[in-house]
Simulated scan of single mutants.
Amino acid sequence: MTEALLSLVAAELAFPGEPNPAMRAARCIADDILAGHGEAVEAVIFYGSCRRSGDATGLLDLYVLTTSDRAFNGPGAAAFFNAALPPNVLHWRLDGPDGPLRAKVAVMTLHAFEGRMRPDATDTTLWARFCQPATLVHARDTEARRRVEAAVARAVEIAVTWALRLGAPTEPPAALWRHLFAKTYGAELRAERGNRPESIVATAPAWFDAILPAALARLPARPAADGGRAWARRWARRRAAGKALNVARLVKAAFTFNGGPDYLADKVARHSGVAFELTPWQRRHPILAAPLLLWRLRRQGAVR
C-alpha cells in the first residue's frame, strides 16, 4: 500500500480537533454503544449524509465493527443473522446534551469488513461506501485503527479499479467518481434522486481529487476497459446480485430492526421525495406487503 494513499486515508478518518455538531453527536452515540458493548467493539465509523452535511438532527449512519458476532449480539438469533447476512442494523436513540439523537447503526465484525474489500467481491456496498469520506469515531487500539485505515485504503483502490474497468475517464477526477457512483448506486435498490453521484462528489472535491492519483500509483497496472463486454457482464452480475442482497437485507431488517418498516418509509421519503404512509396491516406484515409496495414505489420512481 503506498504511503501517500494510507496517509490521505488516515488523515480523513481522524476525528477532527474542532468537531461540528454531527461529529459530536456521532461521538456521543459511539460512547453510548461502548458503554453497553465496549469489550466487543473494535471500531466505530461515521459516514453518510449527516457526516457530509454536519446535521446532528438527522439520522446518523454508523458502522460498528466488532470482535465477533456473538460478542456483540449474544448467542441467539441476532448473532446467527449477523454472520449469515451482515450487517445487522439497529435504530439507536439517545438523549444527547443538545437534544435527542438518532442513528442507523450497522454491525459486523472487523474481519468480515476487511474480507469484503476485494475487487472480486459480489457485494459492492462496502467498498462503494468507504471510498467516500468517513470518520473513525472510535478505535479500540492502534492495531484496530491501522486495520480500518488499510481496509478503507483498499476500498479506494477497488473503486478506482472498477471505475477504469467500466470505462470512466480519469480527467477531471470528478468525472471518474461520478461515473463510478452512478454504477454502484445502480447496483443497489436505492431510494435516491438521480443527482446523488454529483452531490457526493461535490461535497468533498479535495478528497476525490487527491485520492485518485494516490490510488492509481498503487495499482500495478492500470486496468482498462478494452475487454469491455467481459467487464460489463461481470458488472451486470454484481448489479443483479446487489439488488437481491438489498432485498434480503430489507426482509431481515423488517424483523430484526426495531421500527424497521417505518424507518424504511422515512428513508424513501427523505431520499426520493416520495412520501407514503404505511397501514397498520403493512406494519404487522412487512413481508406480505413488500411486493406490492415495492412495485408501487418503482412506478413512482421512488426506488431504482
Rank of each mutant, 00 (worst) to 15 (best):
D31H: 07
G76Y: 05
A56I: 01
G48Q: 08
F46M: 13
H91D: 14
A56R: 14
A35L: 03
I33C: 12
E42D: 07
G76H: 02
G58P: 03
D55R: 04
H91V: 13
A79N: 05
H91S: 13
G74H: 10
T67V: 13
T67H: 02
F72N: 06
V64H: 09
D31R: 12
I29H: 04
L60R: 05
D31I: 08
T66Y: 02
L34Y: 01
S68N: 08
D69T: 09
L85V: 11
D31V: 08
R27S: 15
S68D: 12
A71T: 06
I33M: 07
N82S: 10
P75Q: 03
L85N: 12
A78T: 07
C28K: 06
A78L: 12
R51M: 15
D98R: 13
F46V: 02
G58A: 02
C50K: 07
S53N: 05
C28F: 11
S53T: 15
G96L: 14
E39Q: 13
P75V: 05
P86W: 00
S68V: 06
R52C: 08
E39V: 01
G36M: 04
A77C: 04
V41I: 14
A25Q: 06
D69I: 01
G96K: 09
F81E: 10
N88H: 03
